[in-house]
């Protein structure tokens, strides 16, 4: 017997409703704390992507594609990449003005540009990885449709 509505069973959907927000917040936390504790843009970005992938698995692709499709994902990834490039080149071209090592330790607002670059990386990784996931999934689905 096949489900009429897309996605998995009711139990999975209910649990996803509870957890997906937590996963998203945890990803953002890892990103923002990147310069203080282990973690950072890449790890945080992947966790953010995982939240979206969980949504897609539980509710089916249409639900997620309405929120974030490939076009928007590419746009976000491009913006993240450009932001990171601008920040990085600003630091690298004038290294004297920006210190990588924080003056104040263990605080959220320290290390200057470093935390900004973490956010840019997280944006790039989250959007980029999700676009890759979507592309691969849609590629397989296209193929299956062609066979039928």
């Amino acid at each position: 017997m096949k489900n009429k509505e897309p996605g998995m069973s009711l139990i999975v959907k209910t649990i996803t409703r509870f957890t997906v927000g937590l996963v998203l917040v945890y990803g953002i936390f890892i990103t923002l704390q990147g310069h203080v504790s282990p973690g950072g843009g890449f790890a945080g970005g992947i966790i953010i992507t995982l939240a979206f992938i969980q949504l897609m698995l539980a509710f089916g692709q249409d639900e997620v594609l309405r929120k974030l499709n490939q076009e928007k994902g590419l746009l976000l990834a491009g913006i993240g990449a450009i932001l990171f490039l601008v920040i990085a080149s600003r630091i690298f071209l004038k290294p004297q003005q920006h210190s990588f090592v924080a003056e104040k330790h263990f605080q959220l607002l320290s290390a200057g540009f470093l935390s900004l670059s973490e956010i840019a990386i997280a944006l790039m990784v989250a959007a980029g990885l999700f676009v890759i996931f979507l592309t691969l999934v849609l590629l397989i689905e296209e193929e299956e449709k062609e066979k039928k």
Partner: peptide
């Protein structure tokens, strides 16, 4: 020397946007 990598990378991202 830094521009040798910044410029093409920036172009690639801009082209994507």
């Amino acid at each position: 020397l830094l521009y040798f990598t910044i410029v093409p990378l920036g172009t690639a991202f801009l082209v994507t946007l």
